[in-house]
Amino acid sequence: MAQDHDHPHDDDHHHDHEHGSELSEMQIRVRALESILTEKGYVEPAALDAIIEAYETKIGPHNGARVVAKAWTDPAFRQALLKDATKAIGTLGHVSRVGDHLVAVENTAERHNMVVCTLCSCYPWEMLGLPPVWYKAAPYRSRAVKDPRGVLADFGVTLPSDTEIRVWDSTAETRFLVLPMRPNGTEGWSEQQLAELVTRDSMIGTGFPKAPGSPS
């Protein structure tokens, strides 16, 4: 792995190992160097995390907000997105390709969707940017399934008691994007204006889009 052979770019996902996990060449090289530097005391993982967290919103193309805003304004796109998100997003020229199979799940008054995943490389960062620290943490993963309402309450999200909460766990081939409900009071807004309201958490299902007129 040490030699710099000409490997195709990182967003090529392979599924050679049916039951194992997959790291790209670049991910392996980065992890190897970080392990060595940590063991030798040159860097502290917490210090690296702090630097990376400062750029949490600057990692990945962040296509999710634009995709959600388009689904809110274009009924045909919304339908296509819910039918086959990977394909629908592929039709948007300005959006880079999405690896693996992406499924969009729609929030309604009757049902709220929420996504869990782990550290693995299958987080849909093309859509959502860098996974937040809490999302990678074991407590979120275990509690999201057992007590989704309690987890949502921790995020300040309260839903009517008759709203069903469905938790989606990512698999090797399938990743999820929550399509949140369009906020009231945004009639006639442009896609671009609407995209500003779409938060990362609202696409994970642990938050709502921003209300119109709220500070960003």
């Binding site: 996990s21 790291l23 392996i28 190897a32 392990s35 060595i36 530097l37 030798k40 782990t118 550290l119």
Partner: peptide, 29 residues
């Protein structure tokens, strides 16, 4: 700080760690 041999050894170990880790679990060395 380190050398190419050590880098290669750790890279190989991480590759192995990924292989043996069931999908969906954190990969740890």
């Amino acid at each position: 700080v380190t050398d190419a041999v050590t880098l290669a050894r750790y890279q190989h170990a991480w590759d192995h760690a990924a292989d043996r880790t069931p999908h969906g679990e954190p990969i740890e060395l």
